[in-house]
Design a protein around this nucleic acid. Sequence first.
RNA 1: GCCGGGUUAGCUCAGGGGCAGAGCAACCGCCUUGUAAGCGGUAGGUCGUGGGUUCAAUUCCCACACCCGGCUCCA
Length: 662
Amino acid sequence: MSGSAIDVTLPDGSSRNLPASSTALDLAQSIGSRLAKAAVAAVIGGEERDLSSQLAQGDQVAIVTADSDAGRHVLRHSTAHVLAQAVVALFPGAKFTIGPAIEDGFYYDFELPGGKTFSDDDLQAIESKMRDIVKADQPFVRAEMSVKDALALFVDQPYKCEIIERVTSGASDGADAGEVGGGDSVSVYRNTDSFVDLCRGPHVPSTGRLGHFALMKVAGAYWRGNEKGPMLQRIYGTAWESKSALDEHLTRLAEAEKRDHRKLAVEMDLLSFPAELGGGLAVWHPKGAIVRKLMEDYSRHRHQTGGYQFVFTPHLANANLFETSGHLHFYKDGMYPPMEMDNGTYYPKPMNCPMHCLIYRDRQRSYRELPLRLFELGTVYRYERAGTLHGLLRIRGFTQDDSHIFCAEEQMADEITSLLDFVLSVLRQFGFEDFEFKLSTRDPDKSVGSDEIWEKATAALIDALQRHNVEYSVKEGDAAFYGPKIDIDVRDAIGRKWQLSTIQCDFNLPERFGLEYIGSDNARHRPIMLHRALFGSVERFFGVLLEHYGGAFPTWLAPVQVRVLPVTTAHEEYATRLVEQMRGEGFRVDMVAADEQLGKRIRSAKMERLPYVLVVGDDDVANQTIGVNPRGGDVVRGVKFESFMADLRAETKGVLPQGLSS
RNA sequence: GCCGGGUUAGCUCAGGGGCAGAGCAACCGCCUUGUAAGCGGUAGGUCGUGGGUUCAAUUCCCACACCCGGCUCCA
């Protein structure tokens, strides 16, 4: 081995001998030209660096390729720089702020002179300018400089100066670190004589490595996410390692758009949001209502057999109740305004828990009654700010599948553990298989109760998660004001994540309401309260389900399960007999008479996403058979009607108890 | 709440200071049909609401309601 050579170690443990002062790109080159072509950055000694970084003797080096998560992150971050350069070139005087890579893409926030805003036409012009920059194959040249020099360099860019000052003064909350790194010096990346951006990197070697991107939309965004700060103009884009990856992404977006629950709800005549009713308030049409009812029936069935007791509580309550619970203190702005009445002030309820506390407190409780599980499909009203409403997913009046479990402290861990089983089992019935767990902990500024009880409650939740042996992430400071919680996310049929269920531990409301039970020691004790919702909001869950199934509800949930189509009028009598028999067994069935051609009627049924279309003609009348056209399957002619019925019964059996299937 | 865009027939959308348009759906005929759009006809509108400019406003301006994309918020 010559003295002027170095050895570096690759991720697989092998080592490689290179000439001294070789760069990461040289290393990639020496491994293979295909790798070098795919390379966008390197990880040297655990740190993400540019490909132009020089390697030293003994370095651990991994080449980051464009088709990895880390590689796409680099591509997107670099593309954001190109966006900034294009905007600065096209809009003289524009101030650029931050431009990070995000899931599937990137954005960059700008402030335009005179408070101007971007239009869709601007977006096209900017994208075209970006393509010029890519074509010019400008290098990304890294430089480190002192804070003083950097401040001088960005003298016309107040937001950049603010970032530099915050990071170097140690005031950064971490969000800025992605831009500059930190320490006494900062790094910048220069593309041209006129364009240089503050950045930690790494970046691709040159803009020619980019190109599979698209600008998606323009939106307002607050500087530093601060509602009281200036409103900036944000441009969102997406960027990928190849044309095919970009196309796939755009196809996924189109697929998601097709599944949009607001669109499907109109197409399938499920529900609507009449403007006359006011924002965020829905009315349920018969076909949406039957699906919702089935969901609720299933929920009631599971709760009834799961040891819960049903309760009902009113929609309004005296302000005193919400003062006791603390809701008025923490969420007054999110509550509907009060109504003054002869004997006091009343509010529409934003939560059911205070009322369940009153039911508990109505009489003295014994330890023998615990855990006491109260369940209600309780409709609540929350004054969501106008700009936050979003179909069924963010709505002002909604129904929670809400339970409050009152238990002794020593029962808490077991109760949470069995609750997790219960939640997952219910969610699985709706076709969800992929779950993620999040533990939210206390925010000292927005909470009540002693440190001690918060620690106990958090420990109980962690214990339950560990007993289930599941991975979970921790969200610091995300808890409710009364206690920590576990939230459960699910992935839907096309891989999107939705937060649905929540299990919350509460030592505080029992104290505020003075809840007690008499223990076996004949002394008074304070119960623990567990809040939990599986669907969360029935409306929101319905919206998620609609997108998850793309409108094609499974047979047990479908508004119409079977449609019978007589080939001609002559077969209508036979068709009617079949319909009556199926309805007699509780199935949801209809018939469309032969006023239109069969092909047209089949098409309509398919567009309505019906699970089964039965076609009956001469052969079928003669042989007591049907033609079965199942959703997503092949047509089978000459099926014995009884055989189809046996399959249909088997398919829907056991979800709901007898008598609740419609 | 903030920034931007939007609202025309039941739905999807075109149009544009001077008689309001299409496709699908609906309704009425004809066709009697074997697995994803048969043919013909009819009807359907205070162009989101209110105000303003104008000889004239669905079109331009303002306000409000609702919707969409984000931001912020989300017990």
